[in-house]
């Protein structure tokens, strides 16, 4: 089990009678970037939300660094420091500046020294090109800048893994790039990530492994090259063909 940051075994998740996953297993190794793709409603986001404890699960076990996750309130607080999550709609806190947004968790949850955390925040902001926006409020930022801030807000916690839930889906095309550049850099530096995205070119470039999810099951799993250029299943072929426009 060593080397696995996340190991999901026989996960079962249902909303009432509506079963999302009946038996899903998946691992993410240390330093690995795993990209999940699949049609809307296939359970991609739900999977990330289960990992972060935002959704209770109905069966199976999720291991973080070999330890099974517990869903009590206290342990959730600990888990969430280890599992960072970035959302589609950024969800920065509008009542705080960029810097305050970033420092909230390290200072209030991790009880780190404010000055030391601030220094790190500034370094991280510098890295994502937002050093001069530290004192701006989210309302004054573009979508891309907000999302880069949200990534920094997660990174400063030093999570073992980062969950990215369609983080470019709400962005203008021009801003997608600046956000993906940041993620690409993280991937190169060996940050373990589980990414849900519809950006196929990015998925191919960043992923160490691609998982194709449909109907709550993993239909295909493999190297990005192989998956994108010679998918094994008909379902994956049909899904991928939807991303290249050809007149029928």
């Amino acid at each position: 089990m060593s080397g696995n940051i996340i190991e999901i075994r026989h996960l079962r998740k249902a909303f009432g009678d509506h079963v999302i996953f009946s038996d899903l297993s998946l691992t993410v190794k240390k330093g690995e970037t795993v990209v999940i793709i699949g049609p809307s409603g296939c359970g991609k986001s739900t999977l990330l939300r289960c990992l972060n404890g935002l959704e209770p699960i109905q069966g199976g076990t999720i291991y973080l660094n070999g330890k099974p996750l517990e869903y009590g309130r206290k342990s959730l607080v600990k888990i969430r420091q280890k599992i960072g999550m970035v959302f589609q709609n950024y969800d920065l806190f509008p009542n705080m500046t960029v810097l305050q947004n970033i420092l909230l968790s390290p200072v209030k949850v991790q009880k780190r020294n404010r000055r030391e955390a601030k220094e790190e925040a500034e370094q991280l902001l510098e890295k994502v090109g937002l050093r001069e926006k530290a004192d701006a409020y989210p309302d004054a930022l573009s979508g891309g800048q907000k999302q880069r801030t949200a990534i920094v807000r997660s990174l400063i916690m030093h999570p073992d893994i980062l969950l990215l839930d369609e983080i470019t889906a709400a962005l203008d095309p021009e801003m997608v790039h600046e956000v993906l550049d940041v993620v690409m850099e993280l991937s190169r530096n060996g940050t373990a990530m589980l990414i849900v995205t519809h950006e196929m070119a990015f998925a191919e470039a960043a992923a160490d492994r691609v998982i194709f999810l449909d109907g709550g099951r993993i239909l295909e799993e493999g190297e990005p090259q192989a998956f994108f250029h010679s998918p094994q299943t008909e379902r994956a072929r049909r899904f991928l063909s939807a991303f290249t426009y050809s007149e029928s």
Partner: peptide, 12 residues
Amino acid sequence: SQIESAESLGLS
């Protein structure tokens, strides 16, 4: 989503 965002940062 604001509340979930806060919770996902480990806030009680």
